[in-house]
Simulated scan of single mutants.
Amino acid sequence: MSILLVDDHELVREGVARLLGDAPDMVVVGQLSSGEEVLEYISHADSNDMNSDIYSTNNIYRMPDIILLDARMPGLGGIEATREILKLAPECKVVAMSSVASGVIPSQMLRSGAKGFITKSVPVEELLKAIRVVNEGDHYVTPSVATRLAVDPFGDDGGGGLFDKLSRRELQIAQMLTDGKKVSQISIYLGLSPKTVYSYRYRIFEKLGIRSDVELTILAVKHGLADDTREYDGLPSFDSIVSFPAKQLIS
């Protein structure tokens, strides 16, 4: 099966690619660092023929069977990226991975259409199992996350789905604000006027009962929408992997 890796950390991409390269039934067809890049990649591939290779001037764009996607990335986050990926290529199956095992991220990723969700601390065997299960058409969720979702389906620790109050656009802007993006940057990225972004920001604050970006970030960390650190746990086997130069596309 063919796999496309999407993560904004090069070490994570290279490590996972090395691990998957040892699996006889898996081939990594590309490594990308953002949601924007994966949408550009998918748009160049033929979503109507999952077995075809599409040739561009410099690279080969092969439509993947599985997209292994980081749930938390700057810019277009994993939640919105998953929705857009499935619009372009509904045949693709998304497996989300995250260092956040609680809060709203798991439930939001699954609602956006991801077929699998694993934490970055899982053993290699579970990573491979998740990919194979999803490729066969089933869902896979890391057991510890599945247990939390069964007890608290909103992923909100009994908070009644606090971030579910936000619209898709509001949630996207909230994530960008917690990533430290300024209103002017969000405005340019989303193609909205600064006034419109400020209006969204005001509605976010009103719905969540907060008054500042600092309070938003604290709330986002508390409910798992943001990490309290941008450092990832990585996979256990990374200790035995030697970092080597990244290749954006692997034929």
Results as ranks from 00 to 15, higher is better:
residue 89 A to F: 07
residue 72 R to S: 14
residue 30 G to F: 03
residue 160 G to H: 01
residue 64 P to Q: 11
residue 69 L to V: 09
residue 245 P to A: 08
residue 82 T to D: 01
residue 117 F to C: 07
residue 206 E to F: 01
residue 181 K to E: 15
residue 108 Q to D: 10
residue 95 V to F: 01
residue 30 G to P: 03
residue 166 L to W: 02
residue 171 L to V: 12
residue 34 S to E: 00
residue 36 E to C: 03
residue 7 D to N: 14
residue 129 K to M: 05
residue 110 L to A: 11
residue 173 I to C: 00
residue 109 M to I: 08
residue 55 Y to T: 10
residue 162 L to G: 02
residue 76 L to C: 08
residue 28 V to S: 00
residue 20 L to C: 02
residue 54 I to V: 14
residue 32 L to W: 09
residue 56 S to N: 09
residue 212 S to K: 06
residue 92 C to K: 06
residue 178 T to N: 06
residue 242 V to D: 05
residue 123 P to V: 08
residue 183 V to R: 11
residue 53 D to A: 12
residue 142 T to F: 08
residue 125 E to I: 07
residue 80 E to A: 09
residue 134 V to G: 03
residue 62 R to D: 01
residue 193 S to T: 15
residue 198 Y to S: 15
residue 124 V to E: 10
residue 44 H to G: 02
residue 114 A to Y: 03
residue 142 T to V: 07
residue 198 Y to P: 01
residue 45 A to R: 10
residue 249 L to W: 09
residue 51 N to H: 14
residue 218 I to K: 15
residue 175 Q to W: 08
residue 34 S to T: 13
residue 181 K to H: 07
residue 68 L to P: 05
residue 179 D to I: 00
residue 130 A to K: 11
residue 135 N to G: 10
residue 188 I to G: 07
residue 59 N to K: 14
residue 88 L to T: 12
residue 72 R to T: 06
residue 215 E to N: 06
residue 164 D to Y: 13
residue 116 G to V: 04
residue 173 I to V: 11
residue 117 F to L: 00
residue 50 M to H: 12
residue 128 L to S: 06
residue 19 L to W: 05
residue 107 S to N: 08
residue 96 A to R: 01
residue 80 E to I: 02
residue 189 Y to L: 15
residue 120 K to C: 02
residue 143 P to D: 04
residue 72 R to E: 13
residue 14 E to C: 09
residue 201 R to I: 01
residue 164 D to C: 09
residue 19 L to A: 13
residue 81 A to K: 03
residue 22 D to I: 04
residue 233 D to S: 15
residue 196 T to G: 02
residue 106 P to E: 06
residue 209 G to M: 05
residue 70 D to N: 06
residue 85 I to Q: 04
residue 73 M to F: 08
residue 208 L to Y: 04
residue 116 G to C: 03
residue 61 Y to N: 00
residue 230 R to K: 15
residue 35 G to R: 06
residue 9 H to E: 14
residue 99 S to Y: 10
residue 160 G to T: 03
residue 79 I to C: 05
residue 45 A to K: 00
residue 12 V to R: 08
residue 125 E to V: 12
residue 66 I to Y: 05
residue 201 R to V: 12
residue 248 Q to W: 09
residue 143 P to Q: 02
residue 112 S to K: 11
